[in-house]
Amino acid sequence: MARLIARRAVLAGLGFSAIAGGTAGLAFSPDFREMVLGTGERLAYGTHRLIGRNALAPEFTEADLSPDFRTNGNTMPRSEVYRRHLESGFSDWALRVDGLVNTPMAFTLDALKAMPARTQITRHDCVEGWSAIGKWTGVPLAQILTRAGLLPAARFVVFHCADDFGGMAYYESIDLVDAFHPQTLLAYAMNDRPLPVGHGMPLRLRVERQLGYKQAKYIMRIEVTSTLARTGLGKGGYWEDQIGYDWYAGI
């Protein structure tokens, strides 16, 4: 019994020290705080890849569509090149696919529309908290990547966009699990109409198990990389670099 009491006392001591030490560390040590606050993102990413690698996002019906799907972020890219493409109806525009691929390729909008398409009605969740339901039609990203062929070192797919904030072009990135997920699309139509400018004409990413800032609009170029360190400021996306949003969107 004495041993039992001793063991219990040790457990209690360890437990209470951990709680008190952890709280003090969070309050007073910025390094410790940074280390701890990365835990949620790491645990979420690891857990989701473990339990739901290929799970499909819920799909809805026409009756569930948001009557008014709001826009946010940039709603009209400022670049001259984009404006010229907009005026010519993207007739001489092409999506470039390069980086760690066997064959760098370019796809015109007509070529993309001629490929087997997928249509899905899904919910778009902004990091700020609101949700809207829309109908998206586009080419599964997996088809594009399979056509170009990935090199063995490929780990991430980076989307370079036509819009910018203060001169810095928007970009986003996802891993290959999300890139090859059957619901991950390069969407060129929304609610049965050509993708509106406010929602990313000519192409926007739909990566349905992620938050809104991952759904890059105005995609001009897709780059396959082995690391995110050499793109932007190295955190994998415009908002990740600028204000510290989690790359995996962590929930």
């Binding site: 949620g40 979420a44 990091v127 949003y245 989690d246 962590g250």
Partner: peptide
């Protein structure tokens, strides 16, 4: 600071 609040929230 939404980014930092989310890191606190989703860790704890």
């Amino acid at each position: 600071n939404l980014a930092q609040a989310r890191r606190w929230h989703l860790t704890f």
